[in-house]
């Protein structure tokens, strides 16, 4: 029987990357087999069983086996629909949608709009995050306001935005209803908390003494931010920006209320076009064309989002994150 030391030695000898790759390949093969025989439920059992066996092989303690097994149940709930979604796509329909100019506009807006919202969130969120990290009187009130969009139903958020910046709002001569500004504002409303909180955590993680050291050796507040605080927190800011972008990509409720359909400059057409934000477009397609057609558009949106998300993660990864190799 292998001792703990021997077991660890064996894992070290194999390496973590091959283990993870082997696990993923086995999972993919198992799903393909179960799906091909028309029994995807079998795969659900397989996830739970294979996770428990892997946990036992790697660690061997009942605690780890129990936590891994419980976690795998959640993975079934989250992962199985995703696998089924991918497996049930009709390639011809996906290709047809991928070649559809209307879908191109939707995908462009689905990336471009959230990008503007994320940049807006960072532009004004980072200074606020710096203030929150330093602390000030009345801070709990501001914190509550920042986090409010996390708990407010997003259709309500849309209504709030229209009250503030719609017809008869704070700027009576200007309404954000159905405009690109409204779209970005609705997205920023729900995604700004992610940018603020991630940046704030990054600022809080910086030792005050580094700022003291910068100041005492001659740098003023601006220079200290430019040369020390900013560079040390930049990873947190990027994480916040990516989270804000991802949240904005998926936003439906607030956008559907404020900017159901917007006109925007589309460089590939050389002029302005009208389109809906991708989640709204997917929902409309579902209502009008059913599950299969909307699924093909959703698949394309998912693929574009995943590629951008992984690209940003790859570009900003410094190799210090734990977990997956």
């Amino acid at each position: 029987m292998a001792t703990e030391t021997e077991r660890r030695f064996e894992i070290a000898a194999v390496g973590r990357t091959p283990l993870v790759v082997a696990f993923v390949v086995v999972q993919a093969l198992a799903f393909a087999a179960a799906y091909s025989v028309g029994q995807p439920t079998w795969y659900a059992y397989f996830i739970v069983g294979s996770t428990a066996v892997t946990a036992y092989a790697l660690d061997g303690t009942s605690f780890t086996v129990a936590t891994a097994t419980a976690g795998s149940l959640l993975m079934v709930a989250l992962g199985l629909p995703l696998f089924m979604f991918v497996a049930r796509q009709t390639p011809a329909l996906v290709i047809e949608k991928a070649l559809d100019p209307d879908v191109h506009r939707v995908l462009y807006l689905g990336v471009y709009g959230p990008l503007l919202a994320a940049l807006l969130s960072l532009l004004f969120g980072v200074p606020l995050a710096h203030l929150l990290a330093k602390g000030f009187s009345g801070q709990p009130l501001v914190e509550s306001l920042v986090d409010l969009p996390l708990v407010v139903p997003h259709s309500v958020a849309g209504i709030i935005i229209l009250f503030g910046f719609g017809k008869g709002g704070a700027f009576p001569q200007f309404s954000v209803l159905g405009t690109m500004v409204g779209l970005v504002l609705a997205m920023a409303f729900v995604s700004a908390p992610y940018a603020v909180n991630a940046s704030r955590e990054a600022f809080e993680a910086i030792d005050d003494r580094l700022e003291y050291a910068s100041r005492i050796h001659g740098a003023n507040n601006w220079e200290t931010f430019r040369r020390v605080t900013g560079p040390l927190a930049v990873r947190g800011m990027i994480t916040g920006g990516v989270l804000a972008w991802a949240r904005a990509v998926s936003e439906f409720g607030a956008v559907a209320v404020v900017a159901y359909s917007v006109e925007f400059f589309y460089p590939f057409a050389g002029g302005t076009v009208t389109a809906q934000h991708a989640p709204v477009f997917v929902y409309n397609t579902y209502l009008q064309g059913g599950l299969e057609e909307s699924g093909a558009v959703a698949f394309l949106l998912l693929a574009v989002s995943a590629v951008i998300f992984l690209l940003v993660r790859y570009l900003t990864d410094d190799g210090t994150a734990g977990g997956m190799p």
């Binding site: 003291y212 040369r227 020390v228």
Partner: peptide, 9 residues
């Protein structure tokens, strides 16, 4: 200023 925990950038 020299700090106990160095405070190097």
């Amino acid at each position: 200023f020299v700090f106990q925990d160095y405070a190097l950038f």
